[in-house]
């Protein structure tokens, strides 16, 4: 581990320099295993936040107070320490340019992590596929990668929309509610354009978003989902 970056009060990025690093695909995750001195093991999956093209592998971890793994990663781990990883893992929730678009990325909370890897990959390969990110988050302070996402929004091909579900700054003109069919109808590409959609977030968020998109006429076969649970700690 070479660096910790505090992204928000709850989310921290862990920058890793891996020996024999295997190139990952944007959207994949790794499993992290911790072993206590008495041999007790705990293992969790974390999405890779960096693009395959980035110099280091970055995981963004949400610290759960009662978690077995995340408090250690965020509070105890120090630069120079080593971690046991397995991966990269997964081949379903993955975006590569050959899969096409237009691309719709729908994130709930820390579900933005693998989608950020896709956005960085999109930029790294100079893709001209249009992308929209819809990111649902409690407040502006909870937006992970805020400066980077705002910077990406300046890219002609990338459109970033936030919905702040709990607290909005004064004069906020963006969305201010939980995701629903009307909001998705507003943001999503028309189904006739055959968009490719990735939805990542807590289980209930993913169900609502995916069902709403299908209800709007999107092809279920072009909607890929990944659910985070409280077991992500």
């Amino acid at each position: 581990m070479i660096e910790l970056i505090e992204e928000t009060a709850e989310a921290t990025s862990i920058v890793l320099d891996l020996p024999d690093r295997q190139r990952h695909r944007a959207g994949q995750h790794v499993d992290v295993r911790l072993t206590a001195e008495d041999g007790y093991e705990a293992q969790r999956s974390y999405s890779i936040a960096s693009a395959p093209e980035d110099a280091y592998l970055v995981l963004t971890v949400e610290r759960l107070d009662d978690g077995e793994v995340s408090p250690y990663l965020v509070d105890t781990l120090r630069p120079g320490d080593e971690l046991e990883l397995r991966g990269p893992i997964g081949g379903y929730f993955v975006w590569e340019e050959v899969l096409g678009g237009p691309l719709l990325l729908v994130a709930g909370g820390s579900g933005v992590v693998p989608l950020r890897a896709m956005l960085r990959h999109h930029q790294a390969v100079g893709s001209t596929i249009p992308v929209r990110l819809l990111y649902s988050v409690k407040s502006l302070d909870d937006v992970i990668y805020r400066d980077e996402l705002m910077g990406m929004a300046a890219d002609d091909e990338i459109d970033v929309r936030l919905t702040l579900t709990r607290e909005q700054p004064e004069g906020w003109r963006g969305y201010a509610r939980r995701i629903d069919q009307e909001l998705l109808a507003d943001v999503a590409w028309p189904p006739s354009e055959g968009p490719l959609t990735y939805v990542c977030g807590p289980t209930s968020f993913v169900e609502v978003a995916a069902n709403a998109l299908v209800g709007l006429g999107h092809d279920p076969g072009r909607i890929r989902t990944e659910r985070f649970g409280p077991t992500g700690g």
Partner: peptide, 20 residues
């Protein structure tokens, strides 16, 4: 308990079946 999805067991499935 909310159900997750098969992405969450990609690692153990790889271990068991030797493939993604």
């Amino acid at each position: 308990m909310d159900a997750l999805d098969g992405n969450a067991i990609a690692g153990v499935l790889f271990e068991v079946f030797g493939a993604e």
